[in-house]
Amino acid sequence: MDASSLLPHTPDLRYLAQVIQLAVAPVFLLAGLGAFLNVCAGRLARIIDRARQLEPKVLASRGEEHDRLVKEVRVLDRRIGVVNTAIFTSVLAAVLISIVVILLFVAFLTGYKVGTAIALLFIAAMIATGTGFAIFLHETRLGTKTIRVRAHILEHEADED
């Protein structure tokens, strides 16, 4: 029995570069998802700021103005939920991609055959990513559809002095 048979399984370092190359694409995807999450968080902050700005106006208003403000606050509340869902699915995608990268290195270090698990997790990550983007698209459409400049503002002309 030689000394090498007493050592635990050690992976061939020649293949480490290949594993790192395989891991680079998912890592770039993580960077893209991070940027997307930043956009979502910024949008969420703006929606929340607008809702907080309207709260005292709703309480102080009456009649048609009150009804219009309540309607806008309800839409903002809905948009907050939609953006939160987009954030959730995007974070889920990031977690799944992280697991894919971890499994690539686990397979390299241990020799376990986890190709099917990696493929399924990557598919799930792509589904979550696409879902997050679709939900975000829905939120942007909701925002542009419901927040319109009122006609009397568009047609307003300043009084001449």
Rank of each mutant, 00 (worst) to 15 (best):
T89I: 03
T144S: 15
I97E: 02
V114A: 08
E139T: 01
Q18D: 15
L142T: 06
I153T: 11
F105L: 05
F136A: 09
R150S: 12
A51L: 11
I47L: 14
E64D: 10
K57H: 13
E72C: 06
I102V: 13
E65Y: 05
V101P: 00
L7K: 13
L69R: 04
D12H: 07
R74A: 12
A35N: 08
R79L: 15
R68Q: 07
K57C: 06
F88K: 06
L29S: 13
F105Q: 06
D67T: 09
R52Y: 12
R141M: 08
L120N: 13
F108V: 09
G63H: 05
L13A: 12
V114E: 05
T116W: 09
P11D: 05
L59P: 01
F133W: 07
L54M: 11
Q18L: 14
L96T: 08
L16H: 10
V70W: 02
A60F: 00
E155F: 04
K71E: 12
G63Q: 10
I87C: 07
Q21P: 00
L92V: 15
H156V: 01
L6A: 13
A86P: 08
M1V: 05
F108G: 06
L103D: 11
E55M: 11
D67G: 03
E155W: 01
L37N: 15
K113W: 03
N38Q: 08
A158Y: 13
R74N: 14
V70D: 00
G32N: 05
V95K: 02
L30E: 09
R78M: 12
H66T: 01
G63I: 02
D67M: 07
Q18A: 15
H9A: 12
V75W: 09
A25P: 08
V75H: 10
V100K: 00
V27L: 12
T85D: 10
L16Y: 14
Q18S: 13
E139N: 05
L109A: 06
L33C: 12
A51K: 10
I118G: 06
V106D: 01
E65T: 15
G130H: 01
D12V: 02
S98Y: 03
G115P: 02
F136D: 09
F122G: 06
T85M: 11
I80M: 09
R74P: 00
I99M: 11
D159Q: 08
L33E: 13
K145V: 09
R141S: 03
N38M: 11
V73S: 11
F105C: 05
V19E: 06
F28I: 06
L44H: 07
K71N: 08
V19W: 07
P11W: 02
D161M: 04
R78H: 12
G111Y: 01
Y112N: 13
R46T: 15
A41I: 07
V149S: 07
A86Y: 06
L76C: 03
F88D: 14
L96Q: 14
L22D: 10
G111S: 00
D2W: 04
R50T: 15
